[in-house]
Simulated scan of single mutants.
Amino acid sequence: MRFETLGSEVLMFVGDDHESVATAFFDGDDALLVDSLGSAEDANWMRSVLCADLGKTVRVVAATHYMSDHLAGMTLFPDALTLAHRHHRHTFLSQNRCADEFYREPKLVFDSAMTLRWGRHELRFVHNPGKTMDHVSVDVPTADLVCAGDNIVGNIVYLSKADPALIRAAIGRIHQFGRRTVVGGHMGRFPAVVLDNAIHYLDRLRDCVIRIRSETAGLEIERRIAAIAIETCLAPQVEPTSFERDWHQRNLEVIVAQSVFALDTAMAASERRA
């Protein structure tokens, strides 16, 4: 577990569980959290740092998306206002493994966008569906950062049950904010180039899978997809972390199990025939 300062009145926490991230914004002794880590142990550690060590009171807990590995602290601050997109239940119920004990009904929901002034910072919550249908990007121009949630996973993406094209579009919208720092849902903070790297990874992975599906058939498709090396998909000069390697392998499993990019392959074949 670790935390670091991202700027004036901004603190980022990274837990041990899934390297899940939470970002705290301060208004005097009051704190607003964007996401709240992935395990009870991590969330209790964060509460100890914020409340016991720093003397802060958590007044708001907002979610970039309602998956359990980002909600562990929701129930630790019963007096805090909880904030999420209107489709939060769709995301929570779509998980492979729901941690029902972390679920807390948000007191405030919104549809497309809302802005919240918190101390010296202005937080712009923008609905940005990609990895999940309820995904929210939190643009903070006063801190020159944006909280991207799980629309990126470091320099890659995680496909899960999402439409890859939707993820790509979501990353593009994050890029349009023009912030120098991108806070991911996992791993921590990154320079803005991480967005280009994630799109590069997604595009190269798509190209690899389309080529394999076009050239082979049957079980050979599964074997070749499972053998796609992450280095084949990464942007130049990007060295994969162990966390990114792990989620790349999960992507390969998802691609086989859910026939991801099969439609893209069919469309590419149709274009060639035309």
Rank of each mutant, 00 (worst) to 15 (best):
F3S: 07
E4W: 04
T5H: 13
L6Q: 10
G7Q: 02
V10R: 00
D16W: 02
H18G: 06
S20P: 08
F25I: 12
S36R: 08
A40T: 14
V49F: 04
V49K: 00
A52P: 05
D53G: 02
L54K: 14
T57Y: 01
R59C: 03
T64A: 10
H65Q: 14
A72L: 05
L76C: 05
F77A: 00
H88D: 06
F92H: 11
C98E: 13
C98G: 06
A99T: 01
R117K: 15
L123Q: 10
R124L: 10
F125K: 04
K131P: 00
H135C: 11
V136R: 00
D139L: 00
C147Y: 13
L159M: 10
P164T: 02
A165T: 04
L166W: 01
A169Q: 15
A170S: 15
H175R: 12
R180T: 13
V183H: 03
G184Q: 05
G185Q: 05
G185S: 09
F190V: 07
A192R: 14
L195V: 11
L202R: 07
D203R: 15
L205P: 11
V209C: 04
R211P: 00
S214G: 05
Q237L: 12
P240D: 11
S242T: 11
H248S: 08
Q249Y: 02
T265G: 13
A266K: 10
S270V: 05
A274Y: 12
